[in-house]
Simulated assay, not measured.
Amino acid sequence: MDEAEMTKRLEMLRIEHRDLDAAIDALSANTSDQLQVARLKKRKLMLKDQIALLEDYLIPDIIA
Rank of each mutant, 00 (worst) to 15 (best):
E16C: 04
L47V: 07
S32F: 02
D25T: 06
L53G: 04
E16A: 12
E5V: 00
R14A: 04
I62E: 14
I51G: 13
K8V: 00
E3S: 10
A52V: 04
A23F: 00
L10Q: 08
D61F: 01
E55S: 07
K44V: 02
A38K: 09
L20W: 05
E11A: 03
S28M: 04
R43E: 15
A38V: 02
M6N: 14
D56N: 13
V37M: 06
E16S: 12
Q34P: 07
D56W: 00
I63Y: 04
S32C: 06
L45G: 14
K8S: 10
D21N: 12
N30S: 14
A22C: 07
K48I: 04
A38E: 15
L13Y: 12
L54K: 05
A23Y: 01
S28G: 13
H17W: 05
D25V: 03
L10D: 08
Q36A: 14
A26Y: 01
A29L: 09
L10N: 09
L58E: 00
T31K: 02
L54C: 04
D56L: 02
E3L: 03
D33H: 08
A4S: 13
L40A: 11
L53F: 05
Q50G: 08
A52N: 10
A22W: 02
A4R: 09
D21H: 09
K42Q: 13
L40G: 10
L53H: 07
D19H: 03
L20E: 13
I24C: 00
K44I: 05
A52Y: 05
L58D: 01
Y57V: 04
R18N: 12
M1D: 15
E16V: 03
A26Q: 01
A23E: 14
R39C: 10
L35E: 15
T7I: 07
I59P: 06
E55C: 04
D61S: 06
L13W: 05
R18K: 10
I51D: 14
L20N: 14
A23Q: 13
M12L: 09
K44R: 15
A4V: 09
E16W: 00
Y57C: 02
A29F: 05
M1A: 14
A52H: 09
E11Q: 11
E11H: 04
L10A: 01
A29Q: 12
D49Y: 05
K42Y: 12
R39H: 13
P60I: 00
D2C: 01
P60E: 07
K44Q: 15
I62K: 08
M6L: 12
K44S: 15
A64M: 05
R18G: 11
K41F: 02
R14W: 01
L27V: 03
D61M: 03
H17S: 08
E11S: 11
D49I: 06
D61E: 13
K48R: 09
A4G: 08
A4D: 15
D49H: 07
Q36D: 12
I15H: 06
S32M: 06
R39G: 14
A23N: 07
R18D: 15
